[in-house]
Write a protein that binds this DNA or RNA. Structure first.
Length: 615
DNA sequence: ACCTGCCGCGCC
DNA sequence: AAAGGGCGCGGCAGGT
C-alpha cells in the first residue's frame, strides 16, 4: 500500500491511496494528520511525500513513527542526476516539477523546469480529482477533536516549526495531486532505468535515511553539560565574562606577541598574523598549523596552542553549549543526501565535526548505554566489492585491512598501506603516498583500474556512477570554458596549464566519488536495516515506558557520521543491539555486493560515554 | 548593517 | 607528519 500526503486547498492536508487515486482517503486539518497516519500505519504503507523534513517532524512530535516512505525531493535529485536514467528521461520527456529544485544538489541542474506546472497551477483542479469537492469528506475514524484527543504537539522541542505552520505555507508544501503525479513519474523513470533494481534500492535506502535524519533530531544525542563544561574549563580555564577571552588565551597571546616582538599584533587576523610572522623572520606562506609546525621559533608553540584553544572556544565553547544543548540533548539538523556523493550534511551545530575532545560529553542516560559502531576501513572494502577485486578483498578478510596488505607483502608497514590506499582513492601523485600507489596497482590491478577509469572520465568532463546508480554532477560551465579555451588555436601556455590542472582536479573528484558515494550507500543500507531491526526489539523490561514520547524505553539511533552510528539503548538491551548492529553490517554487504566475498567488520563498543569508544 | 569570498580547521 | 576527496562553521576582509 502506498499513500500520498500533500496539501489541499484552505490549509488542509490530503491523503491519497495510490491504488485508487480517483478520490482522496481523507482531507483534514494539519492537527488531525498524526492520528490519521497512526491509524493507516497499521497497514504498513509506504508514505509518499514531498520531503520528510517537511512532514515527519510533526508526526514524531505527536508520537507517531512511520516504517517507510518515498521522499520525492531526495528521489528526484537522484533520478534527475543519474546517468542510469538518461535514456528513460529522454524517452519519457516528462517535465520535472519546479518544486523539486529545492532538493539538495538539484538547484543548478538542467531540467525541464520551464514547462513544469507551477505549484499554484497544480493546486487548482487537476486530471486526478478536484479536492474542492471534498470539503467535508473525511473518514470519521481519522477525525480528531481539536479540543482534546489529538496527540499534543505542544512541548515538542521544535517550537519554531509549529510557529511556521501557524503562519502559513512551509517549504515542501506540495498539493497532493502533484505528489501523486511526481511519484508516478519517478517510478516510471526507475522502471526504465539501466538498472531498475539498484535504483529502486537506492531510492528506498535514501528515503529510509530521510526518516532517520528526522528521527535522530527528534531523539537527540544525550549530552552531559557538566562534562562538557569541565572539558572547557580544563582546556580554556574559567568561563570568561561575556565578550571576553579566556585568561589562558590572553596569556598565550601575550607570549606570542613577546616572542615575535610585536606587542600589538592581533592573532585572530590572518593578515596581521602573517605579516608579523614574516617580519619576525618566519618565512611562511600561510598561517596554517601544518606549515607553522615546520618552523623552529619560540613564537610557534604558544601560537599553535592559542589557535587550538581559539578553535575550541568558537566551535564548541560555552555559547555553542547554550545554543545547542537543550534538556540534555544535542539536536542537529541533519540533511540526508546533502552532499554530491550522497553523504549527509548538517545545517547548524557542526554535528559531523564533533571534536574528539568534546565527545566525552556524549553520555548515556542512567540505566542506558551507548552502542558505538564504526565500519573499519569502509571505503577500501567498498572499492574491493565495486571492482570485484579478489586480492583486495582477501587483504580485507580480517579486521584490519591495512595489516592484510602488509601480510600480503605489498608494502612493509601498516602506515605505508594506509597512505597508499588513501592516495589511490584520493588521487595522490606526490609525496610518500604517490610513491607507494604503483605498488598497490601491481597487487590490486582491478581496484586500481576502477578508480583510474573514474578519474579519466572526470578529466574529460563526464559523469561517473555509484554502485546503486547515483551519478556525479557534470562539471560547471566555468570548468568547460576553461577546457575550451585551452583547445583554442591561440591558447597560451597558461591557458593550457590551467585547463590541465582543472581537468585533473575534476578527475580526483570523480575518482573519489565512486568510492565515497558507494560507501555512503553501504552505510545507508546498514543503518536502514538497523532501524528496522531496532523497531522489532522489545522495550526494556526494567525501564517503565512513560507516555508521550516516541523513543521511551526502546533502543534507538542517536547519531550518524558517514560510517559510524550510535544507538542509545536501555542497558539490558545493549548486547542484543550490538549483535543486531553487526548483523546488519553483514546484511548490507550482501545486499550490495551479493556473494562477492568482502567483509565489513565493525569496531564496536558498549559504553557509557562516547569518549570511551575507541576512535 | 548586511553580504560574499576565503582561510583555517574540525570531522569522515 | 602532510598529500589527495567530501563537508560546515566561525572569523576576518573587503565590498556594498
Amino acid at each position: 500500500m502506498r499513500i500520498a500526503i500533500g496539501t489541499a486547498p484552505r490549509g488542509r492536508v490530503a491523503l491519497v491511496d495510490l491504488a485508487d487515486p480517483s478520490q482522496p482517503l481523507a482531507v483534514l486539518g494539519p492537527a488531525g494528520l498524526p492520528a490519521a497516519v497512526a491509524e493507516l500505519e497499521r497497514q504498513r504503507p509506504r508514505w509518499v511525500w514531498s520531503d520528510a523534513r517537511r512532514w515527519y517532524p510533526a508526526l514524531l512530535a505527536a508520537g507517531v513513527r512511520v516504517e517507510r516512505c518515498h521522499d520525492l525531493l531526495l528521489g528526484g535529485a537522484i533520478v534527475e542526476g543519474s546517468a542510469d536514467v538518461v535514456a528513460a528521461r529522454a524517452a519519457g520527456a516528462e517535465p520535472r516539477p519546479r518544486w523539486l529544485s529545492a532538493a539538495p544538489n538539484l538547484a543548478g541542474v538542467d531540467g525541464a523546469i520551464a514547462v513544469a506546472p507551477s505549484v499554484a497551477a497544480s493546486a487548482r483542479a487537476t486530471a486526478l480529482f478536484d479536492l474542492d469537492e471534498f470539503d467535508e469528506v473525511h473518514d470519521e475514524s481519522f477525525s480528531v477533536d481539536a479540543a482534546g484527543s489529538a496527540p499534543a504537539s505542544a512541548g515538542s522541542a521544535d517550537a519554531s516549526e509549529g510557529a511556521a505552520e501557524a503562519s502559513g505555507a512551509l517549504a515542501g508544501d506540495v498539493p497532493v495531486d502533484a505528489v501523486v503525479v511526481e511519484y508516478l513519474r519517478q517510478m516510471r523513470l526507475v522502471e526504465t532505468s539501466a538498472r531498475p533494481r539498484a535504483m529502486q534500492l537506492l531510492l528506498a535506502a535514501e528515503s529510509a535515511g530521510a526518516l532517520i535524519g528526522v528521527e535522530l533530531r527528534s531523539a537527540g544525542l544525550p549530552w552531559d553539560r557538566v562534562v562538557h563544561e569541565s572539558v572547557l574549563e580544563r582546556e580554556l580555564g574559567a568561563k570568561p565574562k561575556h565578550g571576553w577571552k579566556p585568561a589562558r588565551m590572553e596569556a598565550l597571546a601575550l607570549e606570542v606577541r613577546t616572542a615575535l616582538e610585536q606587542p600589538t599584533v592581533n592573532l585572530d587576523s590572518q593578515v596581521e598574523l602573517l605579516r608579523a610572522l614574516r617580519r619576525a623572520g618566519i618565512q611562511v606562506a600561510s598561517t596554517g598549523k601544518w606549515e607553522l609546525r615546520e618552523h623552529d621559533h619560540p613564537a610557534i608553540e604558544p601560537l599553535l596552542a592559542y589557535k587550538r584553544l581559539a578553535r575550541l572556544l568558537s566551535a564548541n565553547g560555552w555559547s555553542w553549549l547554550d545554543e545547542w544543548i537543550v534538556d540534555g540533548r544535542f539536536r542537529p539538523d541533519y540533511v540526508p543526501g546533502g552532499t554530491a556523493t550522497g553523504r549527509w550534511a548538517t545545517s547548524g551545530g557542526g554535528a559531523l565535526q564533533l571534536p574528539k575532545n568534546v565527545r566525552a560529553a556524549v553520555v548515556a542516560d542512567p540505566g542506558w548505554k551507548l552502542v558505538v559502531a564504526d565500519a573499519a576501513q569502509l571505503e577500501p572494502r567498498v572499492l574491493a566489492g565495486l571492482a570485484r577485486d579478489e586480492a583486495l578483498a582477501g587483504a580485507a578478510r580480517g579486521t584490519d585491512l591495512y595489516r592484510g596488505i602488509v601480510d600480503a607483502g605489498v608494502v612493509e608497514t601498516r602506515d605505508q598501506a594506509k597512505v597508499a590506499i588513501l592516495g589511490a582513492m584520493y588521487g595522490a601523485t606526490t609525496g610518500d603516498s604517490g610513491r607507494l600507489v604503483p605498488r598497490l596497482a601491481r597487487a590490486y590491478p582491478r581496484a586500481m583500474a576502477l578508480v583510474d577509469r573514474a578519474a579519466a572520465v572526470g578529466e574529460r568532463g563526464g559523469q561517473v556512477t555509484t554502485n546503486l546508480g547515483r551519478s556525479s554532477p557534470v562539471p560547471p560551465a566555468s570548468w568547460r570554458e576553461t577546457q575550451a579555451r585551452a583547445s583554442d588555436p591561440d591558447a597560451t601556455a597558461v591557458d593550457e596549464r590551467r585547463a590541465r590542472s582543472a581537468a585533473r582536479e575534476w578527475g580526483r573528484f570523480t575518482r573519489n566519488f565512486v568510492v565515497q558515494g558507494s560507501a555512503a550507500e553501504w552505510a545507508l543500507c546498514w543503518m536502514a536495516a538497523l532501524r528496522t531491526r531496532l523497531s522489532t526489539l522489545a522495550p526494556s523490561s526494567t525501564l517503565a515506558a512513560r507516555s508521550g514520547r516516541a523513543f521511551e524505553a526502546v533502543p534507538h539511533l542517536v547519531y550518524f557520521l558517514h560510517d559510524e552510528i550510535i544507538v542509545h539503548t536501555p542497558a539490558d538491551r545493549a548486547d542484543e543491539v550490538a549483535a543486531a548492529v553487526a548483523e546488519c553490517a553483514a546484511d548490507s554487504g550482501r545486499l550490495l555486493f551479493g556473494d562477492f566475498p568482502v567483509d565489513f567488520p565493525l569496531d564496536l563498543a558498549v559504553v557509557d560515554s562516547y569518549a570511551m569508544a575507541e576512535g
